[in-house]
Write a protein that binds this DNA or RNA. Structure first.
Lengths: 110, 110
DNA sequence: CATTTATTCACCTTTGCCGTAAAAATCGTC
DNA sequence: GACGATTTTTACGGCAAAGGTGAATAAATG
């Protein structure tokens, strides 16, 4: 989270992607989820780095999966959003909500 | 915006605060708006730096106000969100919306 | 051992943040 | 009616963390 307590934009996105990916949340899937939903290109290295930051802060947990029986199917690191992670997400979203409360962003121009 | 096109968390907050402050959007008011809405303590220097970044990117515009007839009432820099700024805000919000679409965060019970 | 899938590394730029200095205005007092 | 004290507003310098990329490395299987 930015400085003390707050999630950066990308961290929030990564957390959401982990939730979306559910029981299959490992680097490659998380990365794909982000690229599809945000419609922007993201280096996979950035994803791993954010995950590592989030892990150190206790917002995600990591466990090792088993290798899968396909060529190159090496063992995965599966991620899960912790309770603290959900709380941080909620707080961040609520902050945005308060900032945007009653604001009209446009709807007008494009 | 982070790297190419995207607003960071704080930049988005600052832009929203500028909109909220309307015709009285200068450093001190913007800062107060942010502290009240986000409920966190923010250094005013951070606000000015973010405004300067946003200005260089063409997301806010600055014009000089007149001095006000109060002690220490020096001339203000008034800020306004540009069309490009609104677009950037909208894009960022839409990205969040897509990421969070259908996700249950545990509902807004703080 | 070549290939494929997954993760890590080295390095860089930009954000975010703080504390404090500087600037620009008015006020009090003489 | 000027001068310094005071107040409001803005600018500066520096630092740690976040965000980003491209390429290297690791661990599986065919």
């Amino acid at each position: 989270m930015a400085r003390g307590e707050h999630l950066g934009e990308f961290e929030l996105i990564v957390l959401a992607a982990v939730l979306r990916a559910g029981s299959d949340a490992y680097g490659v899937v998380i990365h794909r989820e982000i690229e599809e939903r945000t419609r922007r290109r993201v280096a996979i290295g950035s994803v791993y780095k954010a995950l590592e930051r989030l892990r150190r802060k206790g917002l995600v947990e990591r466990r090792l999966g088993d290798p899968t029986p396909v060529r190159g199917g090496r063992a995965k690191q599966l991620f899960e959003v912790t309770r603290a992670g959900r709380r941080a997400m909620r707080r961040t979203v609520e902050t945005f909500d308060r900032m945007f409360e009653g604001l009209e962003l446009g709807l007008d121009s494009a």
